[in-house]
Design a protein around this nucleic acid. Structure first.
Lengths: 114, 114
DNA sequence: CCAATACTTAGCCTATTGCCTAATTATATC
DNA sequence: GATATAATTAGGCAATAGGCTAAGTATTGG
């Protein structure tokens, strides 16, 4: 059984921290340099950079450095695989119900045709 | 700034492991006892139980014990907050674009009415 | 009642996470 | 060219994660 899909690991992992989700929400309003991003957080800069690194590993942000300023931008499309996985679960679940329904229907038909 | 929302933490955390996602996918097809669930995984039972515990903490499964058998069932609705959070990000993003669009429209109007 | 079954608990191990401070490096700015 | 600014690197620390084995507790079937 192949139950690994490396992207979802780092993606969900990146989303599992409130600081990181807050960063994403901030970036959903527009890109920003590291220091401006970090400002609202009561955290040393290296710690904050660690979060940015996790977000980048998860593909959720993209950063570019120009001069001494590194600018961070959201990569919204990176959320798609997460959303898709969640939707897939519902589909499997609903598939299950459909099958159960089909099965029950079969039983009823048998009952009505003895 | 309140950037904490404890549920999403444990929810995304629970989803960040391939073994746990595989368990959920299995459960989307129907509930199952622990040992049957564990069978496909090359892992000691206590380790596997650790994953079940994480899933339960994230609200993703519900377990009930009857006799010596513990049955696990998926709680699909627990995925909603994750899905909602993801959708919210897109909305914020789109809101940002709308505002930009409105701004550009304003500029154009100004240009056309000197 | 005895043994097999199905978990549970306890304890140990290594790697990762999340946070820190201090020191460096690389630009700007005066 | 000296100094401030923006980020980075290095290293340390406690807690959590994810795995293990071994031993313990209920239940159930013979």
């Amino acid at each position: 059984m192949t139950y690994h899909s490396s992207n979802l690991d780092s993606l969900f992992q990146a989303l599992s921290d409130p600081t990181r989700r807050a960063i994403l929400t901030r970036l959903a309003q527009g890109e920003a340099p590291v220091s401006a991003l970090a400002e609202p957080f009561d955290m040393a800069l290296p710690s904050f950079m660690g979060h940015l690194k996790k977000l980048e590993e998860g593909g959720l942000i993209e950063t570019t450095k120009s001069g001494r300023i590194r600018t961070c931008a959201l990569r919204l499309e990176a959320l798609e695989p997460a959303r898709d996985w969640i939707d897939d679960q519902r589909e499997i679940w609903e598939g299950r119900l459909d099958r159960l329904e089909a099965y029950v229907t079969t039983l009823v038909k048998k009952d009505n045709k003895p």
